[in-house]
């Protein structure tokens, strides 16, 4: 085996190096690659569809939301940074942003939709968990049971602070504090991991 020293390493231009880097699916989507867009829909359609059904007032609204989410995903695809988060988390983030915006507009006129049961806990096995999810759930497990409950109802159940207060019996102020400080703790854990990965991965 031949070992090359640093001084004998051939010099490549950035362009040449990039030729050897395989593009992520979202990077190909950002390049307006129609087959990549189809693959993106095939890969993440189920994730987006489940989010939209859970956080939309009706199946029809969920369908419209899914279309808007994919358009938003294509627009934002070039911002995806694989060093920062997993692709599925990025897709989920864009989807949630769009759904919360739609949901906020709906809530101006009516209370939380009831067509879907947002909060029933299911015993089915969880899908495969990548590092993002593992770290988030580890951070969650370090929170108090009350904080965990509030975060679950807010993030996954789509309930407002007021609705969580009514459901749990916690004062409104406590609900807000639990949701905000709880999410902040999870955020801290994820960003620390991101920083560690960046530092450890540096040449």
């Amino acid at each position: 085996m031949t070992t090359l020293s640093l001084t004998s390493r051939p010099q490549y231009s950035i362009r040449e190096c990039n030729l050897n880097v395989s593009e992520s699916l979202l990077q190909r989507v950002a390049g307006l690659d129609e087959p990549a867009m189809q693959e993106c829909m095939n890969t993440y359609g189920g994730l987006v569809w489940s989010l939209a059904r859970r956080l939309s007032p009706s199946p029809t609204d969920a369908e419209e939301a899914v279309q808007e989410i994919f358009v938003s995903l294509w627009k934002n695809a070039s911002r995806f940074d694989p060093a920062r988060m997993k692709e599925a988390t990025f897709v989920s983030m864009i989807a949630r942003r769009r759904l919360i915006d739609r949901w906020r507009k709906i809530k101006r006129r009516q209370e939380i939709p009831t067509e879907f049961d947002f909060t029933d806990v299911d015993d089915s096995p969880a899908p495969e968990r990548d590092e993002d999810v593992q770290r988030a759930m580890e951070a969650l497990s370090a929170l108090s049971p009350a904080q965990q409950q509030v975060l679950r109802l807010a993030v996954h159940g789509g309930l407002s602070h007021q609705q969580i207060s009514e459901r749990t019996g916690f004062p409104l102020g406590t609900v807000k504090t639990h949701a905000r400080r709880g999410l902040q703790r999870v955020r801290d854990t994820l960003t620390e991991a991101e920083t560690d990965a960046t530092a450890g991965g540096a040449p």
Partner: peptide
């Protein structure tokens, strides 16, 4: 975006296999 990232990762963690379904 860091907070959105945290919420998205949690949401995925809360999701069960039963939540997933194919697009019509």
């Amino acid at each position: 975006e860091e907070f959105e990232f945290a919420a998205a990762a949690l949401d995925r963690g809360f999701t069960t296999s039963a939540d997933s379904d194919e697009l019509p």
